[in-house]
Amino acid sequence: MSETVLAAAALSKGFRSGEDTVRVIDRLSFTLSAGQSMAVIGRSGSGKSTLLNLLCGLETADAGDITVADQNFEVKQGVASPAATCQWALLRKRTIGVVFQEANLMPAMTLLENVQLRASLAGHRAGGEMHWLEQLGVGAEAHRFPDQVSGGQRQRAALAMVFAMHPEITLADEPTGSLDRQTAEEVADRLFEVQRQTGCALVMATHDQALASRCDHCLDLGEGG
C-alpha cells in the first residue's frame, strides 16, 4: 500500500494582480499513496481549487514538479509544453477523475448517458454504468435528466461518472459544498465507501472539518493569499 501515485515537490503558483504577483501556492510538497485520501483545507481564497487544478493539469504551475502515476511533470518557465498538455489530457481521460462543486454533468443527457459518456471516453466498454449509479444510490434516477433530480443526486451521479472510469486518482473540489449537512454526509459516506472498494487515491478540497477528519491526511493551506 505504499506505492506513490501522486507527488508534488516545491510546487509554486501565483497570479498577477496589477503590478505584483500574488503567490497562492508557495513551494508545496506532499506525496500520496494508492488508496489513500487527503483533505485540502484552508480559508476561502487560500488556493485549494488552484492546487487541484494544478494536480490535473488544468492550470500550469510556475515552478516545481508533479508526479502522477509514474509520469513526471517538471515546470521550468511556467508554461506547459504542447506535449505536456497532451499528456495531461490523456491522464484526465483515464487516470484522474475530477469532480467540482457543481455542473459536472451534461445537461442534455440523462444521468446514465452521462456516466456512459465518461466511461467510454476513458476507454471502457459499455455495460457497467448502472452498477455505479446504484452504488452511489441514484439507480432509480438513472433515466432522468440533471435538471430533474436534486443537487445531492447530481453530485452522486458525478461521483458515479468518476468511478465508472476506474481512476487511480480522484480530485474532488468541494463535492458536497452546495448540499445541506444531511445530504452532504450521505454523499460523503458513499464517496468514502466506493473509494475504499476501488482503492483509488482521493484528494478532496473542503471547508468541512468533519469531512476533512475522515481523510487519511490533511493538507492545510492556511490563510492563503
Binding site: M106, A108, M109, E113, Q116, L117, S120, L121, A126
Partner: peptide
C-alpha cells in the same frame, strides 16, 4: 449506439 456516446451528446446538444 451506447458505444458512441459522443455522437449522442452532439445530437442532444443540437436538440437544445
Amino acid at each position: 449506439s451506447p458505444g458512441a456516446p459522443l455522437g449522442r451528446w452532439r445530437y442532444r446538444e443540437l436538440a437544445v
